[in-house]
Write a protein that binds this DNA or RNA. Structure first.
Length: 797
DNA sequence: GTAGGGTTAG
């Protein structure tokens, strides 16, 4: 046992030694360890400030277990030790342990600092309500709130729904407490008003005015006051006001400069962001990882590859040997930059070399692979992730949906829910888009109901996805109704609705909507022009389509790209205006690629323009020798013209090159299940009943004038065999199945992967009359609504 | 022993 007289000496020595450990930067765990070991070996029991210092060293060295162990060993830990540990666990994200220590502490031991630490713990761990409640609680127990209390509890305001009410109440409490002139408290109050102003549907102007009044009347302003008001204006979209304040101070406010750069970046004002960065260097403001992160992200979004690479080099030069937590966000931005510039390999290299990665790093590399369509790589990273958040799932779901892997996307959506993630509006959007790919109206409607139940009715992403879903499932009226009732819409919503009308052959209405969008002051983007020109093309509105195409560059400054040219050539060729189409092709500032020749070939097939068709096909054979569509279109053209030898040659060429024709497949949703059919299907369990039903139906149709058009059977076979083959086309089987199984009178909605066949198109007109119900067919390109013997496309397709 | 501002992923 140590003699009583030497305890104090020992305590002093240990105290001094630990102080030396604390003075190291970073705090030296390796020095503290032997000191602590010596205490244990000599039987010295640390108390008071020695104990607290040890706990502090362990927590700052991320050795929370040791800190906890020490704490548990003490019979009566004092309030300082308790407060330190609450803060330590809170910083480590363990709110449970913080709360345990808090509630294990008897009321008579507590003080204001102790309460402050717990309020901060709640605030840092996203429980705003608990923070506010504890603030009230401490006052009920007669603990006086101080500067720290107010800055902490005001910080928690951002997390709660009724910010404004709480903000005003806390403002009153501040005044009552006598801390209303303390700079730090005023800074926190200003920051709270700013956050209230920035929340949606708030009276932003008056709240910002209040923030401004507080700032103007401050007796003393520090750097933080300036930073708070400047970033406040940035958050509330008033970059000009922010700039004015920044120019109005001589303080070197790195944080405010960084906020301005990212403010410009978020609004797509890349030039202003770069200008800010340049001025920042000129003003000799210290650049930090936040600066580089924002600027590199600007380079990524603006597509400035060379500048981005220079920034990369500049960062490595400016910040030598950055600590992992400094380098991480910059590396994350760099990974985004490289994959957005098409250099996924470099992105991966940076990812692999990072000493530490966070969830953001993983999500970025995931989106990189999803965006270049490498789903196998994406899945690999997804499975390797040490942890996932909702965004990780959204990246996978929407990525799969976008490349048409709809069933798999829905599987991911369900798996996400099973793993306890509550779907957000973006997750719903991915799942809803998948339903639109599948044509699964029933599932889409169920998801719509869930969107409402989860409170995402007003969400743009979910709403836009729902418009697309209803339209692509054939219910264009529902899409329109949704569009009209959306509380706020963006260019994407308008584009989705214009596309919906266009695909359903309502070209005039599509144009009207496009004009309405212009009147509303929404600037059309490249997608708007793609959709409106397509709408004109489907409806044969040549003059109008031409007008929009010409205006896009001249009036709206949107440079037409290859896709736009392909659509205008499609429009002209469908209308048989081949010389005009040729003129447009010659005016293009680039060599025609596959999309252009494909549009030309499709038009040639419709009008039997064999010579030009051959030219287009030959170019496509060079550009995309493995694409089945070219061979099929060309051989169909020969077949229609009765040139059987030429047709046989094309088929032979296809065989020799090992090109397989994508089989025609049609599907229909019946009672929550998707039934799919191939031509001459023999696999469906009820196929015999379907053939029998069709046979009877065709007899009825013949009575009112239906004659099978055998030119659509593209083999040189006997005529009655041709007729038989026609009657087994996949779309006919699916429609017949719909008649048999759906409730009497219900619209039959059928989907086909390829273009609808000409005889089927004709047959469905007769069927709609004989059976007296509507048939809607979505083929690879557009919709056909058959009603009372007519089709909505007016036979222009 | 306790606080307050800025960044990167859809």
């Amino acid at each position: 046992m140590t003699a009583p007289g030497s305890i104090r000496t020992a305590a002093n020595r240990y105290g001094s030694l630990l102080q030396i450990c604390c003075l190291q930067s970073p705090i030296s765990y390796s020095l503290a360890c032997p000191v602590h070991a010596h205490m244990i070996a000599s039987g010295f029991q640390p108390r008071g400030h020695i104990l607290n210092r040890l706990i502090d060293i362990y927590r700052k060295s991320s050795k929370l277990n040791y800190a906890r162990y020490l704490f548990d060993e003490i019979p009566q830990p004092d309030i300082v030790a308790r407060t330190t540990l609450i803060a330590a666990y809170s910083a480590a994200g363990d709110l449970k342990l913080s709360r345990k220590i808090f509630s294990d502490t008897p009321l008579r031991m507590r003080d204001s600092v102790f309460y402050n630490a717990m309020i901060t713990a709640y605030s840092h761990n996203h429980d705003g309500h608990a923070a506010i409640e504890l603030f009230c609680d401490m006052q009920r127990h007669n603990f006086r709130p101080d500067n720290y209390t107010f800055t902490s509890v005001l910080g928690a305001l951002a997390l709660v729904a009724e910010k404004e009410k709480h903000c005003q109440q806390l403002h009153c409490a501040v005044v009552k407490s006598g801390t209303g002139f303390v700079t730090s408290v005023l800074n926190a109050l200003i920051s709270s008003y700013v956050k209230c102003a920035a929340s949606p549907s708030a009276q932003s102007a008056s709240l910002m005015a209040e923030a401004r009044r507080l700032f103007d009347e401050m007796p003393n302003r520090d750097e933080l006051s300036w930073t708070t008001i400047i970033t406040g204006y940035v958050k509330n979209n008033d970059l000009d006001a922010a700039k004015e304040f920044l120019n109005g101070t001589s303080e070197k406010l790195g944080v405010a400069w960084n906020a301005m750069i990212s403010g410009y970046a978020h609004r797509g004002l890349y030039l202003e962001a770069f200008e800010m960065f340049r001025k920042m260097i000129m003003s000799k403001i210290q650049l930090d990882e936040f600066t580089f992160t924002s600027v590199i992200s600007v380079c990524a979004n603006a597509g400035c590859f060379r500048l981005g690479k220079e920034m990369h080099a500049y960062f490595l030069k400016t910040v030598a040997n950055p600590a992992p937590d400094v380098a991480m966000p910059v590396n994350n931005a760099l990974i985004t930059f490289y994959w957005k510039c098409g250099k996924v390999d470099i992105a991966r290299e940076i990812f692999n070399k990072m000493p530490e990665r966070d969830l953001v790093s993983w999500n970025i590399i995931l989106s990189g692979y999803v965006n270049v369509g490498c789903m196998d790589e994406a899945k690999f990273f997804f499975n390797e992730m040490p942890e996932k958040n909702i965004l990780s799932w959204i990246i996978m779901i929407s990525g799969l949906a976008q490349i048409g892997f709809a069933e798999e996307a829905l599987k991911f959506f369900n798996q996400m829910k099973l793993q306890g993630f509550e779907p957000c509006d973006y997750a719903f959007a991915g799942a809803i888009i998948s339903c639109s790919v599948l044509g699964s109206l029933k599932h889409g409607r169920q998801l719509h109901a869930q969107v409402v139940r989860y409170g995402y009715e007003s969400s743009l992403s979910a709403g836009n996805a729902l418009i697309t879903m209803y339209a692509r499932c054939g219910v264009v009226d529902a899409a329109h109704c949704l569009f009209i009732n959306m509380p706020c819409v963006d260019a994407v919503s308008w584009n989705a609705m214009i596309a919906a009308l266009g695909q359903h052959g309502q070209g005039t209405q599509a144009i009207e909507l496009f004009e309405e969008m212009l009147k509303e002051g929404i600037l059309p983007d490249r997608i708007s022009f793609l959709t409106v020109i397509s709408a004109c093309s489907h409806a044969g509105l040549v003059k109008e389509g031409r007008k929009y195409f010409d205006s896009m560059h001249n009036v709206y400054g949107v440079t037409p790209d290859e896709e736009h040219y392909a659509r205008i050539i499609d429009l002209l060729c469908r209308a048989g205006k081949f010389s005009e189409a040729k003129e447009v092709m010659e005016s293009m500032p680039f060599e025609p690629g596959a999309p252009i020749w494909e549009a030309l070939l499709a038009g040639c097939r419709i009008h039997g323009n064999i010579d030009l068709g051959i030219e287009a096909a030959e170019r496509l054979f060079e550009l995309k020798p493995q694409h089945d569509g070219t061979y099929v279109l060309l051989s169909n053209m020969y077949a229609v013209a009765g040139q059987w030898n030429d047709m046989a040659n094309v088929r032979k060429l296809m065989r020799d090159r090992g090109v397989k024709k994508e089989p025609g497949c049609s599907w229909i949703e019946v009672e929550n299940k998707v039934h799919s059919f191939l031509v001459g299907d023999a696999n469906h369990p009820e196929v015999q009943q379907i053939y029998n039903y069709l046979e009877q139906l065709v007899l009825e149709m013949r009575k009112i004038g239906y004659v099978p058009d055998t030119k659509y059977v593209l083999h040189d076979v006997e005529s009655d065999l041709k007729e038989h083959e026609l009657s087994t086309h996949s779309e006919k089987l699916a429609v017949a199945y719909g008649f048999m199984k759906l409730p009497h009178g219900a619209t039959v909605r059928v989907f086909k992967n390829l273009r609808i066949c000409g005889d089927c198109h004709n047959a469905f007109k007769f069927m709609s009359k004989v059976v007296g119900r509507e048939i809607v067919v979505r083929d690879g390109k557009r919709f056909h609504h058959f009603r009372d013997g007519k089709c909505s496309c007016g036979d222009y397709w």
